[in-house]
Amino acid sequence: MLTALAILIDGLVYSSWLFIVAVGLSLIFGVMKILNVAHGSLYAFGAYGAATMVGIYFDAGWAPLGSFAMLLLAALVMGAILGIVLERGLLRFVYGRDEVIIVLVTYAAFLILEDVIKLIWGVDPYYAAQLYGLLGMTEISLLVFSNYDLALIGLALFIGGSLWLAINRTRWGKLLLAVIHDREMSQAFGINVTRVYTVTFVLGAVLGALGGAFTAPMISVTPGIGVEVIILAFAVVVIGGMGSVPGAVIGSLIVGLSRAAAVHLLPEIELFVIYGVMSLVLIVRPQGLFGKTAEKRI
């Protein structure tokens, strides 16, 4: 019974984390058809930015709870700067080229950014752990949970909900849907597709940085953290169906809950969970759970 509860809560916490980390990737793919390998760098910059700013905040001796604002601020600053640099400075020159070429361009950007991180922050770790314990813990019989972890569930719901509203209930969302559906037609109707692309990419970048920023308090921020996230995010997005936000929700839930179940019941298979789930889902649903089959034109 307690094990079942642990699986549920651990699974939800991990799913929420996965969703926060992966949703930006999904959004960018959905709109721009770009599989952004540099998403891992955005995550890393978000984490480093957050750890740096939290450090400064605590050194200044301000009210501890305000440090959470630093996470948000770090994500906004890092995401916006890198998003604009990558999109305006690099990607717009390769729009219209083969999708794979664009993947490689983002991969090259990722390699470069890995060393840029090292040049800025060095190789020693940064911590934002000061604020991890601020929210206290919750005890359920033998189990103790960190409230910060539990709060991630709320954050994921908030991000998912806001995105859903933004896409389905705002004018900007309508434009976005039009561009997703048919880019050329939207252009013909006078939608400024270039601007939609820039805004989407920057938003996706901020979300990527947000994933890193909110992970920073839980971890030691070190070189190489970005690499690990890329494949996780890809897997979640593929399982859910490329470019679908509800898909990213379901993808995260499936991976998160399966992983928690594996850890508690059969730890030996933990390593295989994500790829096993991905293979199974694709075998049953070749387009992912929420993916749309591309129309075939003769």
């Binding site: 020159f93 950007a109 990722f110 390699l111 470069i112 890995e114």
Partner: peptide, 17 residues
């Protein structure tokens, strides 16, 4: 040795472009 990824990434990026 400390920034080979940067060199490799930039070279490849230039070649692609």
């Amino acid at each position: 040795p400390y920034t080979w990824q940067l060199i490799l990434g930039s070279t490849l990026l230039l070649l692609i472009l």
